[in-house]
């Protein structure tokens, strides 16, 4: 299962990187006479309302969809990790301050906060990423803090403290590797969420702007011709579902693989 999912994800990433080679057409080239074309050898998924090749747009759309999601994921995980590590390891005052901020962040409805931030800073994909990181880090900080607390009373960390080793050594050589498996699971699950969120915002015309091909934006373009030319909508919709599901399944498989307790039951 994990291998299959990893295969799908890697395939998509490679297709995205080598888009100019893989895609049969230029994604921006309009051919108004040939709009809403059906399946054919030269247009495997047909054309959209401006006569652009849907498959090419899908393949080029991988770039913003996936790479912006990776950026968002890295940002959230990184911020969450730092905050979670600090709160979980130092406890006391630092923990109180960070966790109360987290509590406040978590009590906002996240989607609406993203809209609010984007509206405030202006419609731009950079603002979307910023807003997503800003909203989502709190959740990860809490998860990572719990994991850190599981390890901070282990004897090898007590030993380090006892002999007066540097905090930096304890945090980055002992604690961080210990929680890395949990981090990997969180990161894969977060990817799915980021893809969905960026596509949603693009669909609402708050994220990636047309004519740049992006799966969410393509869905938006397709909604007017939903009944007459359903392929234009089904293709990006299905792609999003498959990719997000692949990330979630991969996260699940990773958790099973990395959790020693799960392995015992097999």
């Amino acid at each position: 299962m994990a291998v299959l999912m990893l295969g799908i994800i890697l395939g998509v990433i490679i297709a995205g990187i080598f888009a100019p080679v893989v895609a049969p057409h230029d994604p921006y080239k309009t051919d108004i006479l040939n709009k809403f074309a059906g399946f054919s050898m030269s247009y495997p998924l047909g054309t959209d309302h401006l006569g652009r090749c849907i498959l090419s747009r899908m393949i080029y759309g991988i770039r913003p969809t996936l790479f912006l999601s990776i950026l968002t994921m890295t940002g959230t995980i990184f911020l969450g990790m730092i905050m979670g590590l600090l709160a979980g390891y130092f406890r006391g005052f630092v923990d109180e301050v960070i966790m109360r901020i987290v509590d406040v962040m978590l009590s906002f409805p996240s989607q609406i906060m993203v809209f609010a931030i984007v509206a405030l800073l202006g419609v731009d994909i950079r603002n979307v990423i910023l807003a997503n990181v800003f909203i989502k880090w709190a959740w990860y900080a809490r998860m990572i803090r719990t994991n850190v607390m599981k390890y901070r009373d282990k004897n090898y960390i007590l030993y380090s403290k006892c002999i007066g080793n540097r905090e930096r050594y304890i945090l980055f050589r002992h604690l961080l590797p210990s929680i890395s498996s949990e981090l990997a699971v969180l990161a894969t699950l977060d990817m799915g969420w980021a893809i969905l969120n960026i596509s949603t915002l693009s669909f609402l015309k708050l994220g990636v702007q047309p004519p740049t091909p992006e799966w969410g934006a393509m869905l938006n373009e397709a909604k007017n011709v939903m009944t007459t030319n359903p392929v234009q909508m089904i293709a990006p919709g299905l792609a999003i579902v498959i990719l997000v599901a692949a990330f979630h399944f991969l996260g699940d498989a990773l958790r099973d693989a990395l959790d020693p307790k799960e392995a015992e039951y097999e």
């Binding site: 004897n155 090898y156 007590l158 006892c162 002999i163 210990s178």
Partner: peptide
Amino acid sequence: KPISIVFQDYTTSAN
């Protein structure tokens, strides 16, 4: 100082 320690539970005393 310096002081060093050896624990009972050797399974968790080394990373």
